[in-house]
Design a protein around this nucleic acid. Structure first.
Length: 775
DNA sequence: CAGTGAGCGAGCTTCCGCTTGACTT
């Protein structure tokens, strides 16, 4: 039996540490937090406002068995070591464990591992301390304020907008960022300038014929100016004024944090944030990389040494330069290392293509971070114009020594700048011949919308959200339908091109596509409406600095300068009155005008089931009429004409009769459908629901029936077609068919076997905590 | 991922952060 029980947060970590500590130590994991605030009866918020905001904690029901195990093991051990992470949350976990496991203060020690290496772990064991209650209280203040914000703000949205919505310190600011970016992008009006590029020919220092492209150091505001300039050029001479050659260098980027990994995996591999995290989790659990939820850029001494060895072996000594990085991000807690390969000598690792790609990305980034600067020679050739003060400028870059670039080059969000090429060697005062000079109308670019990864980057800059939550925040705002992923299609426009060639200016129009953006986050009408309301009514919470300011108070609690409940109280005393001051009634819609037919107002608003148009109000004698917006329409841009047209639908109409019953075509919340008696049949996309023929309707009905027919029917056992493919239904329970089995060939006997061999899942009807989308 | 309509009703929804399984027929 082990004398010592060590409790860490992650099971993977537990395994590694147990190996290092040997048989006297039993290492288990808490799997994150073990308790959380929970409501008590009518007090659903779970906070006692009359008793210093005392939170009511309850054990996560999914964790009761785990807690039992930990309790038993703790009783058996002579000493318990609480080894949760060294940050605010980790300290709180240690304290909750102490409470829940009823640990004796005398036999309980708090330790922290700075790295998962034998040395660091043995160091930690000889340097135990006590739980830092100030830090625990700082976490509690954070938790309680988040709870109050979420649980007081969300119900306001249920009343003012629609039920089931949510608001919170993090998610609401994320939505605000997206909503405001959208506003910027749509309000943006491009301005055009004329950019001038010249192609010259000449001879280099060796007398060889060369060509050279150079751009004018000025952009013209008008076509007239650009034309006048070209006119002047037609009689000008061009001469190299100055050639400057400057050595510069470029340094590698730091190794990956969670946010940086998400950004680079998005730019280089086109992975959504959730995919990156899933793959990284797999690599971590397989022992191939270090922990993937971190805000630290630092590497252990061991890792730096291993990287050195790998760099010298794969490249050469010249390519190596040991570096240690410091975090610059706001609110970083640095309980872990940067994300790096566990064994950097492994050039490839992972159990599938995507894992291998991500591993390679992590490995190359880690290597590069320990490599030498790239040495670059930057050449600038300035070309004078005999009758103008402007200059043509050609710049070229030559990589003299690639250094870290051999392993890894960081991407940028706009990959427009392409690597500049080497310039020909041309002596100063050389005369150049202009082959052609082209002035092109160039528009300024609209602000780029957020991708998932660039949103994470922005949130990290603001100190909002944590590495463990970036991915789930995106899931939340998507599932609430505040934002959607969209490919923004580009538009076409004409640009004017003026070309001076052989002393003649020709004018041409060229078409270009602009504004196309792939996989961006855009706000929905619901997101815009919710955000406007929150920004208007709760500007303090929606303030981009709210988190940063709160963090200062939490730091003060951690340093023992403030009492945690005083901080909460100060917040609550200003926050709660703003909740109470909210007036009754829904957020008002946008009045588009008057319906000429009825004389009633036409309002665009967020209805119970999404954006809609309402004619008349509920106070009128008659019921108001409603119509849903069509795809692509917005309550903020729809015109009165477009809105009225929505009421001008053919639905519902009768296509005919089938089996003695009327077939009615209509549209519902899930699209167009055919109704026969009490049965509904969705109309597939390849039909035109506005003018359906009877024959088509019958076909749709028959196809649906066919699909719903049991594949096999053995009486009480049936093989049915479901969403996830064929399955077996028996006794009101469903059973999975093994992938190797062809559903159509199943016999009753085989079905029984499957049913019997399926472990009776303790049908946890205790409703899962994660409720999906709004109904 | 069940279901085909919008006012009222009863009661429900909701936060952030730390971690993995169970289970998605």
């Amino acid at each position: 039996m082990s004398k010592n029980l060590v409790i860490v947060e992650s099971p993977t970590k537990a395994k590694t540490i147990e190996k290092i500590l040997g048989k006297d130590y039993h290492v288990l994991s808490s799997q994150g937090h073990v308790r959380d605030i929970e409501g008590e009866g009518k007090n659903s918020i779970g906070i006692d406002f009359n008793n210093h905001y005392a939170p009511h904690y309850a054990i996560d029901p999914h964790k009761t068995r785990l807690i039992e195990t930990l309790r038993t093991e703790a009783k058996k051990a002579d000493r318990v070591w609480l080894a949760s992470d060294e940050d605010r949350e980790g300290e709180a976990i240690a304290w909750h464990l102490q409470q829940v496991l009823e640990l004796d203060a005398d036999t309980t020690k708090r330790i922290v591992f700075h790295e998962i290496t034998p040395n660091a772990i043995k160091q930690a064991i000889v340097n135990p301390r006590d739980i830092d209650y100030n830090l625990v209280h700082a976490q509690q203040a954070r938790r309680v304020i988040d709870r109050i914000v979420g649980f007081e703000l969300s119900p306001v949205l249920w009343k003012k907008i629609i039920p089931g919505l949510s608001a919170g310190r993090v998610q609401s600011v994320a939505v605000r960022l997206i909503a405001e970016k959208e506003k910027e992008a749509t309000a943006f009006t491009p301005t055009a300038q004329y950019r001038v590029v010249a192609d010259f020919s000449s001879t280099d220092v060796n007398g060889k014929a060369v060509t050279l492209q150079a751009e004018l150091n000025h952009r013209f505001a008008t076509k007239q100016e650009a034309e006048a300039f070209l006119e002047a050029c037609s009689s000008a001479t061009f001469e190299v004024r100055q050639v400057t050659c400057k050595p510069t260098h470029r340094s590698p980027a730091p190794p990956f944090t969670t946010s940086l990994l998400q950004q680079e995996a998005s730019r280089k591999l086109h992975f959504p944030v959730s995919k990156t995290m899933r793959l990284a989790q797999n690599l971590y659990e397989a022992g191939l990389i270090t922990y993937m939820r971190t805000d630290s850029v630092s590497l252990s001494a061991l890792a730096i040494a291993a990287a050195q060895k790998a760099i010298v072996e794969e490249f050469s000594e010249q390519y190596h330069k040991a570096r240690q990085y410091k975090t610059t991000s706001k609110g970083a807690q640095e309980a872990h290392e940067a994300i790096r390969p566990a064994y950097i000598e492994n050039q490839t690792a992972g159990s599938n293509d995507d894992e291998r790609k991500l591993y390679t990305l992590i490995r190359r980034r880690t290597l590069a971070s320990q490599m030498a600067d790239a040495q670059i020679e930057k050449t600038v050739i300035e070309i004078g114009i005999s009758n103008s003060n402007f200059l043509f400028v050609a710049t070229g870059e030559v990589v003299v020594f690639d250094g870290f670039m051999r392993a890894y080059v960081q991407s940028t969000d706009d990959d427009e700048e392409q690597a500049e090429a080497r310039l020909p060697q041309i002596a100063e005062h050389t005369l150049l011949t202009d082959e052609q000079i082209v002035a092109t109308q160039t528009y300024s670019k609209s602000p780029a919308r957020f991708t998932e990864a660039s949103l994470v980057k922005k949130m990290e800059e603001l100190g909002i959200g944590r590495p463990s939550t970036y991915s789930s925040i995106i899931d939340t705002i998507l599932s609430r339908d505040y934002v959607r992923r969209a490919n923004i299609t580009g538009q076409k426009r004409d640009v004017e091109v003026l070309t001076l060639k052989d002393q003649k200016i020709t004018r041409k129009n060229k078409q270009e596509t602009y504004g196309a953006e792939g996989q961006k986050l855009v706000p929905t009408d619901l997101g815009i409406a919710t955000n406007s309301f929150l920004v208007e009514e709760f500007p303090d919470i929606l303030n981009y600095d709210f988190t940063a300011q709160s963090e200062k108070s939490f730091d003060d609690i951690a340093e023992g300068k403030l009492l945690w409940y005083d901080v909460v109280d100060k917040f609550y005393k200003t926050f709660h009155p703003s909740i109470l001051s909210i007036e009754k009634g829904k957020v008002e819609g946008r009045e588009l005008g008057i319906d000429p037919a009825s004389g009633k107002p036409v309002i665009a608003k967020i209805g119970k089931r999404g954006p809609c148009i309402q004619i008349g109000t509920a106070t009128d004698e008659q019921k108001p009429r409603f119509a849903s917006l069509e795809k692509g329409q917005s309550i903020y841009t729809i015109t009165l004409e477009e809105a009225l047209k929505l009421f001008d639908t053919p639905y519902p109409y009768t296509v005919g009769e089938y089996e003695g019953e009327e077939l009615i075509v209509s549209t519902g919340m899930y699209g167009p459908y055919i109704k026969q008696g009490k049965t509904f049949y969705s109309i597939p996309k390849d039909y035109n629901p506005a003018a359906l023929r009877l024959s088509e309707a019958i076909m749709i009905i028959e196809n649906k029936r066919q699909a719903q027919m049991p594949i096999k029917d053995f009486g009480e056992i049936k093989v049915l077609n479901g969403r996830y493919g064929p399955y077996i239904k028996y006794n009101n329970a469903n059973y999975k068919i093994p992938k190797s089995t062809e559903a159509a060939t199943l016999t009753e006997e085989q079905c029984r076997q499957i049913i019997e061999s399926t472990p009776t899942t303790t049908t946890k009807s205790t409703r899962s905590r994660k409720t999906g989308k709004k109904s």
